[in-house]
């Protein structure tokens, strides 16, 4: 935002009538393309100097735009657009540190593997993961989920039983609903015991799309 309306006891009121055109004039002194180049340099230097708590990028996919975020340890968050990317980034800043920068390079590996997955050419992910956002019983559920193989499904009840806590069906459901790494950690492969789809943090349409993709491949 240009601060053309700065209130200042010494400001020059006779300039007021020109403020809009001045704003136009002065805005032409930096263009978006020039800033894109500078942003890329900033990403590289910030990464070199180890200054980033979280690097992120977005990718397009058959289930809509996805936000990918990584710490120095690994992929820490995959988010659906319906989760609101700005809100997700604010949560990441609060929990992992505010040095959060759009820096796609750290996410190259994740982006490539997701592309391969959506092309039907990858059935499991092989990425360093940062599990910081998964705690307690939910963390146990998230750690278990990759054992449900590509193209197969389990019920919430079965997952609870596998974890030695067969009555924790609802807890498994809420763990799936708060999975910080959807798709990569396959909570979409968990269905209701009666065969119903169950909920999904990316929306039931996304869940159907992912299951359809895995069955078709």
């Amino acid at each position: 935002m240009m601060m053309m309306t700065t209130t200042d006891p010494t400001s020059d009121t006779q300039e007021t009538g020109h403020q809009h055109s001045d704003s136009d004039l002065l805005h032409r002194l930096a263009t978006p393309t020039e800033l894109a180049g500078l942003h890329r340099l900033l990403e590289i230097r910030a990464e070199q100097e180890g200054l980033l708590d979280v690097a992120y990028r977005t990718v397009d996919s058959p289930v809509g735009a996805l936000l990918l975020a990584a710490t120095g340890t690994g992929l820490v968050r995959v988010a659906y657009e319906r989760e609101d990317f700005d809100a997700v980034l604010e949560t990441l800043a609060a929990r992992l540190g505010p040095r959060v920068l759009r820096a796609p390079r750290r996410l190259d590996g994740a982006a490539v593997q997701l592309e391969e997955y959506f092309a039907g050419a990858r059935t499991r992910f092989d990425l360093p993961l940062d599990r910081t956002l998964s705690n307690g019983f939910r963390g146990q559920v998230h750690a278990y989920l990759p054992q449900i193989g590509y193209g197969s499904t389990q019920s919430y009840r079965e997952v609870a039983a596998h974890l030695g806590n067969p009555r924790a069906v609802r807890a498994v459901g809420s763990a799936c609903a708060t999975n910080p790494l959807p798709i990569v950690v396959p909570c979409h492969r968990v269905l209701r015991s009666d065969g119903g789809l169950g909920g999904y943090l990316g929306g039931t349409q996304a869940k159907t799309t992912l299951l359809g993709l895995e069955h078709a491949a």
């Binding site: 942003h39 604010e90 800043a93 505010p98 920068l101």
Partner: peptide, 10 residues
């Protein structure tokens, strides 16, 4: 202290 993602500032 500041909790906003730095990208906002950029």
């Amino acid at each position: 202290n500041m909790m906003q993602p730095f990208e906002h500032a950029v």
